[in-house]
Design a protein around this nucleic acid. Structure first.
Lengths: 329, 329
DNA sequence: TTGAAAGCGCTAACAG
DNA sequence: CTGTTAGCGCTTTCAA
């Protein structure tokens, strides 16, 4: 910038003004032209670090997501990309799988972004409070609503209950295939929903535990567990799966044992990853509202960026049951 | 930092020294302790923009990738995440689908990162030259080797030729399903490889063109085109597909028409996305060396960051044929 | 071992 | 309309 100023014998401020298209301050068209021209000639490239240090917005938002796989997460990424890509903002993505609470408290230190989207992150109240104190624009997403930050949540309870009820409408022995032990510590709404639906139907619970080490989604491991389970306990008449990874893994296990879906057993998963549509039979699932989550989150974040003091907002979205062949529909 | 210094009645430089664990400059253990302590009390958080402006490294590398979907790209992301995640560096990800050459020339302006990985990007020679001039550490990946930047390429030619030859070993009428018109302008090695294999076998080419609008991967559209094609031209005995998206789409179309894979037609795709393993039949494919690409790219980038003047490096990787049930293996 | 001071490149009052 | 100036928060050379 000084180079331009020096070359043109004007001050750096003037240059800054025209380069920033400052509204109000009107620079003579002639000077403007000359500055722009010279900037081009000299190959001027603004230095973002300096701009930000001097108080400018970065026009970058950061999406912190558990990881880039399994497919659920890539679909989330894509939804945000579709939402934010067309705006002035650049979307940066970072994986947060191994983050500690202190990482979260310092999330704004990675780069001075204008805002942070914490997708399904395990954010402690303290971390949120700390970020709020530091005026970091933050919107979180997750299964449970929270009131200490802008938040969009997806309530799986109803959809899961509907799903299990739907299965119960056709079969009696409905199992739940999950990576999470079915105890009180499991705060995920899927288990309570399953449990309550079964209770209401007067049927005993049947939880198939498939802890697979890799958080979610080691399909071969899950398939193996399913195979063993079926050999020992026989096959349930219907299986509600924690998510579509489990559902596909179960499908593979059943295939291997010549158990037909949906003739012998119904299958219903959760998340609505693309792949479910292409299996044979097509897999029923609970369709996660990817686009809507991205929309609301981005909406809230923009408002928070524009107006840091505005009241907190939150949205609760309800996913829909997507019935296909695997549940006999 | 000034706060800490003021509180302790020492200079900001001293604080900076201990906070940076400056090697060599030895600060008295007492001062060190006091500074660290006070920093903690005051909740000191370094300002990255300032650090970078003052000449520090950001410890961030940016991966510029076409988009977050289809699955091929998520697997690429994951490979890089696996490679770079455990290091001191943070991996930032940005989608470059709509970037122009000028976006590329200014890629380092997004944030002052230490280095850039351009994955399968359409980088003009000028853009590369410009980045080089600006001392931006850049490693590119792609199908073709290039000599103007650090580069890792995956050579599909051999693998494709092997694939087609493999199919020709079992059937005569081998088609190529692709989104790219088979003309000279198609610089992708898949078509030439297919063509040459067919020529060598004395078989006529059969190119099924499935331009689907969405660059690659609109599965329903591709399936439709396949259905029409088969109705009009009958079904080839074997199909080599541009990538696994096409392969899955073809599988669906064939299923609909009660054409059996592999009994009636062999199918072989490209990329080795996870999903191929779970279809019935399991889909044969050319396995892209995700991990190796990430490793080499990261290796080159690190060296470039450490030593901007070191000679350019490049690596050429060969993907392997992964034969499964869909090609009758 | 510590402190003073000069930037890094840019923004934004404020005063002409 | 344009120039002067004071930072933004940190690093680093040079002296002490």
């Amino acid at each position: 910038m000084s180079d331009i100023a020096r070359r043109l014998n004007i001050s750096r401020a003037t240059v800054s003004y025209v380069l920033n298209e400052r509204p109000g301050e009107i620079i003579s068209e002639a000077t403007r032209e000359r500055v722009l021209q010279t900037a081009r000639e000299l190959g001027y490239r603004p230095n973002r670090a300096a701009q930000v240090l001097a108080g400018r917005r970065s026009n970058i938002v950061e999406l912190c997501i558990h990881s880039f796989s399994p497919a659920f997460y890539s679909q989330v990424l894509q939804a945000f990309e579709l939402e934010i890509g067309p705006t002035d903002y650049q979307l940066h993505t970072v994986t947060a799988r191994h983050w500690t609470q202190s990482d979260w408290e310092n999330v704004d230190r990675g780069w001075p972004t204008d805002g942070i989207i914490a997708f399904d992150a395990n954010l402690s109240d303290e971390a949120v409070a700390s970020l709020r104190r530091h005026q970091v624009a933050l919107v979180a997403t997750g299964v449970y609503p929270r009131t200490d930050t802008d938040h969009v949540s997806v309530d799986l309870y109803e959809a899961t209950k509907n799903a299990v009820e739907h299965l119960l409408g056709k079969k009696r022995r409905v199992a739940y295939l999950t990576p999470r032990p079915a105890n009180a510590a499991d705060k995920d709404p899927r288990y309570p929903a399953y449990r309550n639906a079964m209770l209401a139907a007067g049927q005993p619970e049947e939880v198939i535990l498939a802890i697979d080490g890799s958080q979610f989604g080691d399909r071969p491991a899950i398939s193996n567990i399913m195979r063993h389970y079926i050999r020992e306990h026989g096959c349930p008449e219907a299986i509600f799966c924690f998510n579509d990874e489990f559902s596909v893994a179960a499908l593979v296990a059943l295939r291997d044992q010549k158990i037909r879906v949906p003739e012998d057993v119904l299958l219903l998963g959760c998340d609505g990853i693309h792949e479910t549509a292409y299996h044979l039979p097509a897999l029923s699932t609970i369709q996660y509202p990817y686009a809507a989550v991205a929309q609301w989150a981005w909406e809230f974040l923009q408002q928070r960026i524009e107006n840091p003091e505005s009241p907190l907002q939150s949205a609760v979205l309800a996913p829909k049951l997507l019935l296909r062949a695997s549940s006999g529909d």
